[in-house]
């Protein structure tokens, strides 16, 4: 017999690998301690950074105008929850930013995913969309921001469009790559079970592409959030990016740091949320 022994309980073999002891990610498989040891190290390094900040600001290694103390930043955070900074409170700024990013995101989902799928399936669609996407994708958003302002003015629309463009390319490209993750055997199986071409697209290709699409949505969301500050440089009166820019003009460094932390924490929360959705929607990812 030439078959390889197929075992359903092969995992524990690597439990005491050096990589795991060093807290490095082991390459695949549910090996013990995948998150455990890095979590400890990460917590320590984060606490160390905060401690360093605390010491540096309290010891006045850096003047408070450049580096306010953690307490000052926390105090500023609590204050701006209730009192407006600029036009609105912290919550108002946050909602304005989230609204822009999520509208752009929704717009990108309903356009980029069909475009990406079409590119994956059809040579014609690939021919049409490849040049524009490949051209603008590496451009920094700030490079085409002026043109968007000329075309769409300085209102909400141009901010949403800027963020939208940042999300569109990665999302369309992952949908396109997702189409390729369907195997030839799966397509053949569907056809020999009587699936028509359109049934194959809707019942096989779309599902097979879903893991990549969800990853693209997560990455796109990250890009969109990254573009936020650039978008809010355009005559905004509200928004986290605007709040930070405004504060930096007046050297209100505690608001700047507080704003950056809030932007970062929201980005992290969105990322974790998207990962959670991925696990819920495609529990089979990477397993079959």
């Amino acid at each position: 017999m030439s078959s390889t022994p197929h075992s359903e309980a092969a995992a524990p073999a690597r439990r005491f690998s050096l990589r795991a002891l060093l807290g490095l990610k082991s390459d695949g498989g549910p090996v013990a301690g995948e998150g455990g040891s890095t979590a400890v190290i990460s917590t320590i390094s984060t606490l160390a950074l905060i401690a360093l900040w605390w010491i540096a600001s309290h010891m006045r290694w850096v003047p408070p105008i450049f580096l306010p103390t953690p307490e000052a930043v926390i105090q500023r955070f609590v204050e701006t929850l209730f009192e407006p900074y600029g036009e609105t409170t912290l919550l108002g700024h946050t909602m304005a930013s989230l609204f822009r990013v999520f509208s752009a995101f929704l717009l990108a989902c309903v356009t980029a995913i069909p475009v990406g799928i079409a590119m994956g399936i059809s040579r014609v669609a690939r021919g049409i969309f490849d040049p524009p996407i490949e051209f603008y994708r590496p451009l920094p958003p700030l490079a085409y921001l002026p043109l968007i302002v000329i075309w769409f003015g300085i209102g909400e629309l141009s901010k949403v469009i800027l963020i939208y463009l940042a999300i569109f390319a990665p999302l369309a490209l992952s949908a396109r790559a997702g189409v390729r993750s369907v195997t030839a055997e799966q397509l053949n199986a569907a056809r020999s079970m009587g699936a028509s071409r359109s049934q194959t697209v809707f019942h096989v290709i779309l599902h097979a592409a879903l893991p990549e699409i969800l990853t693209g949505m997560r990455i796109g969301m990250g890009f969109g959030w990254t573009t936020l500050v650039a978008a809010e440089m355009v005559a905004a009166t509200e928004g986290l990016g605007q709040m930070v820019l405004n504060a930096s003009n007046f050297l209100v460094t505690d608001v700047v740091i507080m704003g950056i932390l809030v932007i970062g924490i929201i980005a992290l929360a969105i990322d974790l949320g998207m990962r959670w959705i991925e696990r819920r929607m495609v529990p089979w990812k990477g397993r079959v």
């Binding site: 195997t183 799966q186 199986a189 569907a190 079970m193 089979w284």
Partner: peptide, 24 residues
């Protein structure tokens, strides 16, 4: 056709895989 590498649809459970052709 039964394939060497099963070629089942992992997004469907067992019975939905088994009834895929009938659904089509």
């Amino acid at each position: 056709v039964v394939f060497q590498k099963h070629a089942l649809f992992p997004w469907l459970n067992v019975i939905d895989n088994a009834s895929f052709g009938l659904k089509m």
